[in-house]
Amino acid sequence: MKDLKEFNIPFVGLKEGSHLFEYQIDKKFFEAFQFDEFDNAQVKTTVAFVKKSTLFELSFTINGTVTVPCDVTNELFDLPITGDLNLVVKFGPEFNDEHDEILILPHEAYQINVAQYIYELIVLSVPTKRIHPSVTDGSMQSETLKKLEELRINKEKTVEEESADPRWDKLKDLLTDK
């Protein structure tokens, strides 16, 4: 987490009003969190920081791509992601981040590190099922897809096999012997 000092926002010296912070997120950012699900990342992050007399409003916006493996073929592809998060920062006797959209900082705090919020926003913006666009439109030619097609179960074939099982014939006789 030592590498993330660039994500500190020292709010003590800022004037009241709106301030804009921009960050370019890459794989090195995720290595600091020991997160290795992304092969690469190119995400532009914008933090709109509004300082008011008693609180701060932070609005995070992300836009970019992460390189992930396809869940079907395991081939890498660039997945476009977008997302936003609004956060209200208040002051209180002690640090409290139990609520998703409200952060309470101690009165003696002089800066806020936004790296954790950027990390969570990017990771949660990636869908749980990641399918290569060429798989969905049918244009991808892959050994994995060919093998999956070969192993597909034919439903008509299984219904015929079930009805031809000789072990059940004696039970069927019980129904007709009434």
Results as ranks from 00 to 15, higher is better:
72 V>R: 10
96 N>P: 08
91 F>R: 03
65 T>K: 08
42 Q>V: 09
86 N>A: 14
55 L>E: 12
92 G>L: 07
69 P>V: 04
51 K>P: 11
88 V>A: 13
38 F>G: 05
85 L>C: 01
74 N>Y: 08
82 T>M: 14
51 K>N: 04
90 K>F: 00
95 F>L: 15
61 T>E: 14
47 V>E: 08
56 F>N: 04
94 E>D: 13
80 P>D: 06
32 A>L: 03
50 V>F: 06
21 F>V: 04
58 L>C: 07
24 Q>A: 09
28 K>A: 13
78 D>H: 05
96 N>E: 10
26 D>R: 11
26 D>G: 14
82 T>Y: 02
21 F>N: 04
57 E>N: 12
39 D>Q: 11
38 F>A: 07
26 D>V: 00
25 I>D: 08
60 F>Q: 07
95 F>I: 11
77 F>L: 03
58 L>P: 13
20 L>P: 00
25 I>R: 03
59 S>F: 10
69 P>A: 12
95 F>S: 07
47 V>N: 13
28 K>I: 04
44 K>C: 00
73 T>S: 14
70 C>M: 01
58 L>I: 03
64 G>H: 07
22 E>V: 14
77 F>T: 01
81 I>H: 05
16 E>I: 04
79 L>R: 01
88 V>P: 01
70 C>S: 14
37 E>V: 03
55 L>R: 13
25 I>G: 07
80 P>S: 06
87 L>R: 06
80 P>W: 01
80 P>N: 03
75 E>L: 09
67 T>S: 10
89 V>K: 10
36 D>I: 00
32 A>F: 04
78 D>K: 13
